[in-house]
């Protein structure tokens, strides 16, 4: 084969291989960031979560597994947060108010998990909860005290927390829905509270 022909052939081969790698690496040109990838993957295969021990704003100890059989909305916060977590509080409140009264607590619950257990003791969790009307039953604000458990929970959810230069944290923020089987089944943007609530209602 002439060199020119070979060159064209190999170029075509390299191009198709490169395109395939891009296609494979971006879930068919849809997920260019790790955050989108996490959401696409959950939709495709709901993910099992570790059964961690939590402590809520009333100092009550409970387990993530206790929620099995219910739909559970989860978000991650730290109470010192002055930006996104504040709107997260408002958004969770909005979601709760969109769910039919009779399902609240029975078939659907909300859980805000703090990834800053050192600062977020029950007193601080309570303060945060009271600001948004979290009652401690339908909507609990909780921390995971065990460092290893917390990390395994964050890993399972795909949450990456990094300290910022102001002594706080930056983290990927989203609305998470855990199914009755205890698997993470949906992650959506925080500005999609209404579609999120509609999804929940459809599943009730």
């Amino acid at each position: 084969m002439s060199l020119a022909k070979r060159s064209v052939l190999i170029s075509a081969l390299v191009t198709s291989l490169g395109t395939w790698v891009f296609w494979w690496g971006t879930d068919g040109f849809t997920a260019f960031t790790a955050e989108t990838a996490r959401r696409v993957e959950i939709l495709r295969s709901p993910r099992a979560l570790p059964d961690v021990t939590l402590e809520d704003q009333n100092g009550k100890i409970f387990h993530l597994k206790d929620y099995q059989g219910k739909l559970l909305a989860v978000d991650f916060i730290f109470t010192r947060c002055t930006t996104l977590c504040r709107s997260m509080g408002m958004i969770f409140k909005q979601i709760r108010d969109l769910i039919p009264q009779e399902s609240l607590g029975r078939d659907f619950a909300l859980l805000s998990i703090s990834f800053d257990p050192e600062h977020d003791d029950p007193a601080n969790l309570k303060k945060y909860g009271e600001a948004y009307g979290a009652d401690g039953q339908i909507w609990r604000i909780a921390r995971v005290q065990d460092k290893a458990e917390l990390q395994s929970l964050l890993d399972a959810f795909g949450i990456i927390v990094i300290p910022d230069q102001f002594g706080g944290f930056e983290h990927n923020t989203a609305l998470h829905l855990v199914g009755r089987d205890g698997r993470l089944r949906l992650i959506s943007d925080i500005d999609k509270a209404i579609p999120f609530a509609e999804q929940v209602v459809a599943l009730l």
Binding site: R6, S7, L9, S11, V14, T15, G18, F22
Partner: peptide, 18 residues
Amino acid sequence: RFGGAWPCVIAALFASSY
């Protein structure tokens, strides 16, 4: 062996953009 200059350039383009 690699088929000349262009396959090399294309490989570099894909890998660097990735």
